Amino acid sequence: MQNVLVVVTVVVVGLMVGVELAVAAFVNPIFDRLPGNGGVAARSNGARVLGQVMPFWYVSSVLLAAWWAVSAWGDLQALTVVVAAALLVVSVVMSVTLLVPINAQVARWSSASVPADWRLQVGKWDRLHYIRVGVIVAALVLLVVAAVG
């Protein structure tokens, strides 16, 4: 059972990291190069779609890591998993307090209601997102280290 929990946790967190890294490195930069305000529509749609899925994914990642930490308590890997779970909690707190408010605004934008400073707003979201990606990558690395250790 422990092996299944380890694999599921690493896969769920790994896929989440992959999606968030793809958004940071590829998707949003592509959207930003669309002509005119094309990036607004693309980002708005992405904010709505991912805004519905990602909360469950982040919470599931935290719960799986916490479950693993509890089940591994007393083993050498437990501390590594606890730190990874703590980083995932940090990513959730960052998301709720810093990124979600901006994302909620972006999700409501349309061609008719785009603010003049939309590029500044999404730029701020992008910078915060890069930090969050770094946090979840660190968590994933720790989970993998614990899994193979």
Rank of each mutant, 00 (worst) to 15 (best):
A104S: 13
A138Q: 07
V100I: 14
V145I: 15
R132I: 11
V83L: 14
Q121C: 05
I102C: 08
W73I: 10
W68V: 01
V62L: 15
P55F: 00
A85I: 01
T80H: 04
K124H: 04
A85S: 09
P115C: 12
R127W: 13
V81R: 04
V83Y: 04
Y130T: 10
A107I: 05
V90Y: 03
I136T: 15
L140H: 11
W67F: 11
L143N: 06
L99A: 11
L142V: 03
A69F: 11
A85N: 04
W109G: 06
N103A: 12
T80D: 07
S110R: 12
Q121G: 04
H129G: 14
A138L: 15
V133T: 08
V90P: 13
V133K: 05
L120V: 14
A78G: 03
A138T: 12
W68L: 15
P101W: 02
A104E: 14
S71W: 05
V144F: 08
V135E: 08
M94E: 13
V144M: 13
A112E: 15
A112M: 13
V96L: 15
A78N: 02
L128K: 07
A146D: 12
V82H: 03
Y58E: 09
V106Y: 06
A146E: 12
G134N: 07
G123F: 01
W125F: 13
V92T: 13
W73A: 15
P101L: 07
P115W: 10
V93D: 01
L76F: 02
L128R: 09
Y130G: 10
L63K: 01
I136D: 02
V135Y: 09
P115E: 11
G134R: 09
S60K: 01
M54Y: 00
D75T: 12
